[in-house]
Write a protein that binds this DNA or RNA. Structure first.
Lengths: 224, 224
DNA sequence: TTCTAGTCTGAATAGTTGTTCAGTTCTTCA
DNA sequence: TGAAGAACTGAACAACTATTCAGACTAGAA
């Protein structure tokens, strides 16, 4: 044997794979999933189109991995925020605020990950990712119900509806568009979070308090 | 002049146009917007592919008209239900229930109309239709706020979030799937409606009452 | 019946984009 | 340095579909 993968090569290959994924993510951030086409992604990653196929068997695999990666990040952020909260209601509010901040910060990407259909079959991956995030929200709702802060309810449906309300009001086509202004952005995030919390049965007055508390990280992220 | 359009011909042309639109609607109901392709639609309508282009300048126009037509029907149904209600809160509940019943009854079609991107540019039409429906819901929210039944709020965002919650929980990928059972279907519609009403600030207890009242037409439609 | 203009047909065309692969370049190691 | 294997390139290919258009067909008027 006259050729073996050295550590250096392994690192380069890994870096290239990451570069391709990052290029896909950039493309999706700019123009949604429709912009994740092999040729443009290859250009962004500084490789030839054929090279993409040395790292991903097909476009579907590339997009699946992109969705999984973004969702993994999202889930981790939600858990981090919720776990840092003092009680179940605050945890739910923190989780919801985190989702809200994330989706408004990367609207095109969020739209692509969440809803925008693609010509290839990535539904399984997308569904799994979505289920994980909904599951995390549902767990927080369950905790709040157990603590007696929320009425008993169909928590799965509630989690789904809650996410739907956030997504639609923040990244959907009817979402407000002048979100460059940080103050306006914070308002919109707070309002959407308030709506989401009320949907699952948080009392209006209490919800307002939770939102104000939870919005702190939102402000921080928005400023970053 | 040796040829003029007789009444008979005019009627035949109109009928054919309707047939093409109906075929498109059927295709969308079966397989979403992706299934609305010229050749299959032409087959369904019993015409040749080329004939479609004698009635619609392009696929985008066909789909735009399909969206407009479906939305028109939807809007009319919402208005009818809301106007028949005794007060602003009931009207809102009736409007929301109507939307819920419609989307669960035609999930693929609703998904196609609402969210599924198509390769052609129909965003303007889709946006306009969506705005109309959101506007109608918003008007009902405004009325309920004026009557003192709901807290003051950003009604535009509230209407959008409300629709998002409904759509996501009823036609989204995480929506429950065993909706063939009418009882289950009614439950889901009621639960989603309850969530939507609570989101805009209807008190839990009151919301439950409104939902039960408004669910009557839902049951009727589901049975039909 | 026959002429004419409108209507319909469906095979051919054209544009788009994922995928392949023969040839080239790079990396390792004797 | 050179041989061998791995990685990369990018033009060519393939599949899918919206759109066109020359010819066939139909309906109306004389």
């Amino acid at each position: 044997m006259v050729y073996r993968r050295t550590h250096q090569v392994v690192k380069r290959l890994a870096a290239r794979r990451s570069a391709i994924l990052a290029a896909a993510r950039d493309a999706a951030s700019d123009g949604g999933m429709a912009a994740v086409q092999i040729a443009p992604v290859a250009v962004r990653a500084n490789v030839a189109a054929g090279t993409v196929y040395r790292y991903f068997p097909s476009k579907a695999d590339l997009i699946s991995e992109l969705i999984a990666e973004v969702s993994r990040d999202e889930l981790a952020a939600i858990r981090r925020a919720a776990d840092a909260a003092p009680g179940p209601s605050s945890a739910l509010a923190a989780a919801v605020t985190t989702v809200a901040v994330h989706v408004v910060s990367h609207r095109k990407l969020a739209w692509g990950i969440l809803a925008e259909p693609v010509d290839v079959d990535v539904n399984a991956t997308r569904l799994a990712s979505r289920r994980e995030i909904a599951g995390e929200i549902e767990a927080r709702i369950v905790a709040a119900v157990r603590a007696g802060h929320l009425p008993a309810q169909d928590t799965a449906l509630a989690a789904t509806a809650l996410l739907g309300a956030l997504h639609e009001s923040l990244v959907g086509p009817l979402a407000p568009d002048n979100l460059d202004d940080p103050a306006k952005l914070r308002d919109v995030v707070q309002t959407a979070t308030l709506l989401a919390l009320r949907a699952v049965g948080v009392m209006d007055a209490r919800a307002r308090g939770l939102v104000v508390q939870a919005a702190l990280p939102a402000k921080m992220l928005a400023g970053a």
